[in-house]
Every structure is written in C-alpha cells, then in structure tokens.
C-alpha cells in the first residue's frame, strides 16, 4: 500500500502532466502579432530573396542591410547567408539563388 503523501504526490504529478498536456498540445498559447524574426526558414529565405531582387535593381547595399535587419539581430551578412542556405535547401531557382548569393557576397565584402 502506498502511503498517503505518495498518493497525494501522484495526484499532483498527474495534475501537472494533464496541465502540460493541455497547455502544450491541446490548447497551446496562440501567437498572433509575431515579428519577422520568427518566420519559418522558407519565408525568411523569400524575404532575403526580395531584398536581393531590390538590391539587384537599385544597388543600395545599406538599404538592403536595413531591410534584412528586421529578420534578426545577427549581422545582415549572416542573415543573407542563412537565407542562401535555405534557398538551396528549398530548391529555389538558380536565378533566385544567384541573386541571394550576390547580395550575400556584397554584404560580406562590405563588412556587414
């Protein structure tokens, strides 16, 4: 026979488990009003691609770095490099990958 405190402890543990199950799986916290930092890798890569497309047109590296800064606190060159890796992973077209690569190289050369 289990002692009474053990039984209470088991009840407590069961309660905690149910609470975690409900809070993490059944009805987790719903996130709205998220920031671009939290975007999934493929969306981040597309954001980097948009920046690269604009950079390819206007050649404004400083503005491109500012645009990338919304994706996180890392240096823009690092964000571009992550975007490049994701673009490869998600099989973006060669032309798109080339644009991102160009932006990444420019940022790395520019010390950003």
């Amino acid at each position: 026979m289990l002692s009474t405190p053990i039984k209470y402890l088991i009840a407590l543990v069961i309660g905690i488990s149910l609470g975690l199950l409900y809070g993490w799986a059944i009805d987790p916290v719903e996130f709205i009003d998220t920031t671009p930092e939290t975007l999934r890798a493929d969306y981040r890569a597309d954001y980097v691609l948009m920046t690269a497309e604009i950079y390819n047109s206007d050649g404004n590296l400083s503005l491109a770095a500012q645009r990338l800064a919304v994706l996180g606190s890392q240096p823009p060159a690092e964000i571009a490099a992550q975007g490049y890796q994701s673009a490869l992973e998600f099989k973006f077209s060669d032309a798109d990958i080339a644009l991102i690569q160009r932006l990444m190289s420019s940022l790395q050369a520019g010390g950003n």
């Binding site: 309660g15 149910l18 609470g19 409900y22 809070g23 993490w24 996130f31 939290t38 975007l39 999934r40």
Partner: peptide, 25 residues
C-alpha cells in the same frame, strides 16, 4: 493535489515555457 498539479502544469506550459514559435507564417 490533482488540481494544484493541473494549475502548476498550465502555469508552466502557458506562462513560463509556452510553445515556442519559431516557424511562424
């Protein structure tokens, strides 16, 4: 005890360590 555990579990899963959202759309 069960309800206290449930409360603790919810407090942890909703407040202290909610599902982390790193793959948002």
């Amino acid at each position: 005890a069960l309800l206290a555990g449930l409360g603790l579990g919810l407090a942890y899963s909703w407040g202290i360590s909610p599902v982390s959202y790193t793959d948002s759309t």
